[in-house]
Computed example of a mutant assay.
Amino acid sequence: MTDTPAPTPAPLSGDARIRAEAAAFRRLRAHLLEARPDVQNIDLMILAGFCRNCLADWYGDALRAEGVDLDKAAAREAFYGMPFDAWKAQHQREATPEQQAAFAASQRAHAG
């Protein structure tokens, strides 16, 4: 008996792909903001190399590419659903020395 690989699905195109990507983004955003606000941005940066702020900045970049005129703070407010400083005050803690060291090490590991 041979292992037969699973058929490769046809790539999505057009509106279906855009809707799927948008839905995945909304689900990731909800997960990070609503289901797991306890996970600190610095820990996301250490483990994944991006955090909620990165997503908010990428969201802002995408909006500006569509002709929406907004600055970084406005993009973050649109992403977080409130001013970033308010979200940060509610959910973020000061980074520990251990987190800062792990972040620095992760940056060195990816720098080249």
Rank of each mutant, 00 (worst) to 15 (best):
C54F: 00
A23V: 10
S106W: 01
D3S: 05
A22W: 11
V68W: 01
G67H: 07
L32E: 08
R36W: 02
A95M: 01
P37Y: 04
F25H: 11
M45C: 07
A109Q: 15
G112V: 12
A16F: 03
W87H: 13
P83N: 13
L55N: 06
A56Y: 00
D71E: 12
E34C: 05
L47Y: 00
A86M: 09
F84T: 09
G81K: 08
I46D: 02
R27C: 08
A86W: 06
A95H: 05
P83G: 11
R52G: 06
A109E: 15
E98A: 10
A62T: 13
A74M: 09
A16C: 06
G60N: 04
E94L: 06
A6W: 01
T4P: 04
A75W: 01
Q107C: 13
A48Q: 14
E66Y: 02
G49D: 06
G81I: 09
Y59S: 10
G112P: 03
Y80W: 04
A24D: 15
A89Q: 15
R76T: 07
D85A: 13
G67V: 10
D15N: 10
R19I: 11
N53V: 12
F84A: 14
A6N: 08
A111T: 13
V68D: 05
T96M: 01
A78Q: 13
G81R: 07
P5S: 02
D61K: 06
L63P: 05
L33N: 09
A62R: 12
A75S: 12
S13Y: 04
Q90K: 15
L33R: 10
P83E: 11
A48W: 08
A86D: 15
Q40R: 12
A89G: 09
R108T: 15
R76L: 05
K72W: 01
A111E: 14
A65F: 00
L33H: 07
D57C: 00
M1D: 10
N53G: 11
T8V: 14
